[in-house]
């Protein structure tokens, strides 16, 4: 019993941080959801060029990428990375980022520099490679 009390006393401070912000009732879900990034098959685009790019990517995903198995260890996958890079920068920078990612994809020996996501993929967001990157996104 003494041990239980000791554990209670020492563990108290661990819980204190929970209440450092006011909180409300939370809906508890019995079901489990894994929030990993998913491909968007929507062709919605802001300009014709983006539409073309998305059409090409969705076609590739539908006919090839979704059928040939899980070959890309990264999250987002190479094609999604390309789309996101172009959207976040421009076609030239996005293409260069994609070329760099492709090269890193070939390097099967170096996988330790990446954070592993819940689905076991290597987190490699485009923000990390933008010329105008946000400091916090680098790690």
């Amino acid at each position: 019993m003494k041990i239980v009390w000791l554990i209670l006393v020492f563990s108290f401070s661990l819980f204190a941080q929970t209440d450092w912000q006011r909180w409300q009732r939370t809906e508890i879900n019995y079901s489990e959801t894994v929030n990993d990034s998913k491909r968007s098959y929507s062709l919605h685009a802001d300009d014709p060029f983006e539409f073309l790019l998305k059409t090409a990517a969705v076609t590739y995903w539908f006919f090839i990428s979704d059928v040939d198995g899980d070959n890309c260890p990264f999250d987002p996958s190479c094609s999604s990375f390309f789309l996101e890079s172009v959207k976040a920068s421009n076609i030239i920078e996005g293409t260069l980022m994609f070329a760099d990612r492709f090269t890193r994809d070939f390097n099967v020996l170096n996988r330790s520099d990446y954070r592993v996501t819940r689905k076991g993929r290597l987190a490699d967001p485009p923000e990390k490679y933008l010329l105008t990157t946000v400091r916090s996104k680098v790690k």
Partner: peptide
């Protein structure tokens, strides 16, 4: 109360105290 807030670790902590 903690359980209603989805704070399970804290809820178990205080239920253990209640158990004692």
């Amino acid at each position: 109360s903690y359980r209603q807030g989805g704070k399970f670790s804290e809820a178990v902590h205080y239920f253990t105290k209640a158990e004692i």
